[in-house]
């Protein structure tokens, strides 16, 4: 990896990453990839997020679904751990709570393969720094 020498170098890394991500998200549905983030902070792991993640990876593989499963930090929904965020190609991300192995199976079958919302969907209840404007 070449060292970052300027803000432009930094922006290049950003753009490369974003364009790669964009391709996965908004590509034609047949090309797009399902993105799954599993909240893997201490709290999530203690509630079984590691098992959920392993299950997701194996099961998606078994069903030959093209997906990227990554780990992320705490989403803040301790009451509903383990939590996962699923982004279907061309769709908004959806956060599911209480995802044990059984629910993970339901989510793959009904939401990822069938497009039907199942289980406990956690609504977005915050603004991001991009969304918040000076009043």
């Amino acid at each position: 990896m070449a060292k970052v020498k300027s803000l432009d170098d930094l922006k290049k890394i950003k753009e490369e990453f974003l364009s790669k991500e964009e391709l996965q998200k908004n590509g034609d549905k047949s090309l797009g990839i399902v993105q799954i983030k599993v909240a893997m902070a201490t709290c999530g792991i203690a509630s079984g997020a590691k098992k959920t993640m392993d299950y997701l990876i194996n099961e998606l593989d078994n069903r030959a679904i093209d997906a990227v499963v990554t780990q992320t930090g705490c989403m803040g929904y301790c009451y509903a751990e383990p939590t996962i965020e699923v982004t279907l190609p061309g769709k908004e991300p959806v956060v599911f709570g209480y995802v044990d192995e059984k629910r993970a199976g339901d989510i793959i079958e009904k939401y990822i393969q069938g497009g039907e919302l199942v289980g406990d969907v956690i609504p977005v209840n915050y603004e991001t720094i991009e969304e918040h404007n000076i009043e």
Binding site: T72, E85, Y126, E127, I129, H132
Partner: peptide
């Protein structure tokens, strides 16, 4: 939306 995520902007993302 009663929350704004500044310190937690990247946590979980």
């Amino acid at each position: 939306k009663k929350q704004i995520r500044i310190a937690l902007r990247n946590c979980g993302f």
